[in-house]
Amino acid sequence: MRRAVLATTGISALIVTLLALKPHQPPALAAVPPRSPLASSSPHTPGSTPSGKPSGTGTYTGDPIDTQYGTVQVAATLTHGRLTAVRVLRAPDQNGRDQQIASYALPRLTQEAIGAQSAHIDAISGASYTSQGYIQSLQSALDQAHA
């Protein structure tokens, strides 16, 4: 009986100690504004505003990016230098799981990119490869818009 009490007490103390070590709230992250890939180092180039953003309207097709699960390619639409739409041209779709991941990740990535006005966005959890392909293709489209 004494061994059972000692074992229970020891286990309880171990659990309390482990719970005390686990942070109960995630640490606050410093907010860093995203850097726009459209910013220019030159003060003013023809066809752009003084801020360096392209002043025109157009749709620019990004490079196709091969990922472990398939190719990702997007087209970015800019209106007066602002990112207004991103259309997914190619995404991994070899099986049902690829299609499921693309169906929830790609709309979120598009929403984030338009909100950030850049390709400097976070990857979607569970869709790391698709997210990285999307971000790289979007960056190449934005680079074309700037050129």
Rank of each mutant, 00 (worst) to 15 (best):
R87G: 07
H44G: 11
P92A: 00
L138H: 00
L18V: 12
A91F: 12
L21M: 10
N95I: 04
T71N: 05
R108L: 13
A119M: 02
Q99G: 07
P26S: 09
P64Y: 12
T71M: 05
I101W: 09
E112Y: 03
Q99N: 08
S103F: 01
G115E: 02
P46Q: 03
Q99E: 13
Q25C: 11
R90I: 06
L106W: 00
V74D: 03
I11R: 08
V72W: 09
P92G: 04
I121R: 03
D122N: 14
S118A: 07
A75I: 01
R90F: 07
V16C: 08
S128L: 11
T57K: 02
P64K: 10
L106E: 04
R97H: 14
P107M: 03
Q111G: 03
G115M: 01
Y104T: 07
P54F: 10
A20L: 15
L106Q: 13
H24L: 13
Y69S: 11
L21A: 14
A85K: 04
A123R: 11
A28L: 11
S125N: 00
L19I: 10
D122G: 10
R82W: 04
T45P: 08
S128R: 15
L29K: 12
G81V: 06
A123T: 15
L21V: 11
A30L: 14
S125A: 11
G52V: 12
S55V: 04
S12C: 09
S42N: 09
L38T: 12
I124D: 00
S118L: 01
T45F: 09
T79L: 02
G56V: 07
A127Y: 06
Q117G: 03
D93G: 13
I15F: 13
L21D: 05
P27E: 12
I15K: 06
G56L: 08
A39T: 13
S51Y: 06
A30W: 09
G56A: 03
H44W: 15
G47C: 04
A75C: 00
A91H: 15
A20C: 12
A102I: 11
T59Q: 10
T67W: 12
R108A: 15
L138E: 06
L138M: 07
D66H: 14
Q136S: 11
P54I: 06
G70T: 13
A39S: 13
A31R: 14
L89V: 13
A20F: 14
T130N: 03
S36C: 11
A75F: 03
G126L: 01
R82P: 02
A127L: 01
A30Q: 13
Q73S: 05
A28P: 15
L78D: 00
G115Y: 01
P46N: 08
L109E: 13
T9N: 10
A30H: 09
K22T: 12
S42I: 03
I101K: 15
K22W: 11
P92F: 06
